[in-house]
Every structure is written in C-alpha cells, then in structure tokens.
Design a protein around this nucleic acid. Structure first.
Lengths: 98, 98
DNA sequence: CGACTAATTAAGTCAATGGCTAAATATTCT
DNA sequence: AGAATATTTAGCCATTGACTTAATTAGTCG
C-alpha cells in the first residue's frame, strides 16, 4: 500500500537492501538479522503490500525478490519536489539579477 | 533526523509539497489543512529535525521554506537500490543470452 | 502416515505516533 | 503596560507499530 511508510522503518530498508542483492529465502534473512522469524515475516508482508518485493515458492521455502518498479513512486515524488525547488531557485536568481 | 520516517506520514508530505511552492507561514498551512495549529506545528518540527525544511522569523510569524538538500539522502538511497537492481537485471540477461 | 522443515498467523506487550484542548511563550501594536 | 496575534509546549487519549512466544499451516521426505 504505502511505499513511504514501508520504507520508514530502518529494519525494512535493511531487509530490502539485502534482497536487492539477489533472491533470498526468509530463513536467510532471519539468519542475517537478529530478529525472530515472525518479525521478519511481518516486515516482508509490509514490503510486499507496498509493492517493493514479491515472492515465489520453492519447496518449503519462499524466495523473495525486489520488484523492479517498486521504488518508482518514491523516486518520481522526490524528483517532482526537486524540480519544483530548482524552478523556484531559478526564478529567484532571475529576479535577483534584474 | 530520520528523513524516511518524516516522509512516511502523508500529511507531512502534503505540508512539504505546500511549502515547496514558496515560503509559507504556519498560519497559512493551518488554514489550508484541516488540522489545529499545534498539530501542524508538530509536523513542522519533525520536518525540520529531518532537515527537510527551515524557518525564519518575520514579526510574529515564522516563515518556512524547504531545504535544497533535504531530499538528497532519500534520492541517493533510491538510486543506489535501482542501480543494484538494474545491474542484477543486466547480469541476468547476459546470463540468459549465453 | 508421521516426523521434520519453513514460514505465517494469532495473541499479547510496550513504545511511539498523531490527533486534540489548554496553557505558555514570544512579538507586535495601541 | 496591556491587548492582540502567532506559534510552540505540555498533557491527554486512542491508534498503530514493532517486537515477542506459542500455535498453525503448508510442503517434504522417510
């Protein structure tokens, strides 16, 4: 759902950074981070709902990967704001040079 | 402090979007949004701590503006992740074409 | 089927968040 | 100084968030 909220938690960003390196099972993530399996599972659920990761089944395991377009919303928002900022800055400079 | 957490709240993003359009007093923001002054004030405090906005005094009013480099951290994080993603995608394509 | 592995769901705790009203703190203006 | 304006701080309450342990589901393999 809300990508920004999903990325607000540093643990979730760390998990995302880990998954972005390649397809990862839940167990692998649990091993790397000092959190219990249910905690990781909840974070993954939130990342998934936000469209940041996806999963597929392989035997008992669930393998997670990042979604290519997951960060698009955040990126475009940030860039729109920066565009507005630079436009205002340009206008200010132009005004000052008059 | 934490830019991501500051941007997690949609109201704060809206406030940021409003301020990015130009220097704005607290009262102006209170008028636009249907929240009481203390609520807006708290949001501004969080945005300020995150380095996203800054303020200056003008008579009784406090005028807020966005900080040019406020979104840099978020932008660079997003772009790093996307770089990692595209590299992995390239490697995959290369591998498949062999 | 039964034991095992992998992950999720359920349920509970505790801290943090986001809203409010009321009070306090400047600052300006008469 | 005293009244008015603009904003912040303090305190309260309801909701959400991030963890935990225990129980449950789902899949594998002897």
């Amino acid at each position: 759902m809300d990508t920004f909220a999903a990325l607000a938690d540093p643990t979730r960003r760390n998990i995302f950074e880990y998954i972005v390196r390649g397809e990862t099972s839940v167990g692998e993530i649990v091993e790397r981070f000092s959190f219990k399996a249910p905690t990781i599972s909840q974070h993954l659920k939130i990342l998934k709902k936000a469209g940041l990761v996806q999963s597929r089944a392989d035997k008992q395991k669930r393998l997670y990967t990042v979604r290519a377009d997951g960060l698009a919303e955040v990126e475009s928002w940030v860039q729109l704001q920066q565009k507005c900022m630079s436009e205002r800055l340009d206008a200010l400079e132009h005004h000052l040079s008059q």
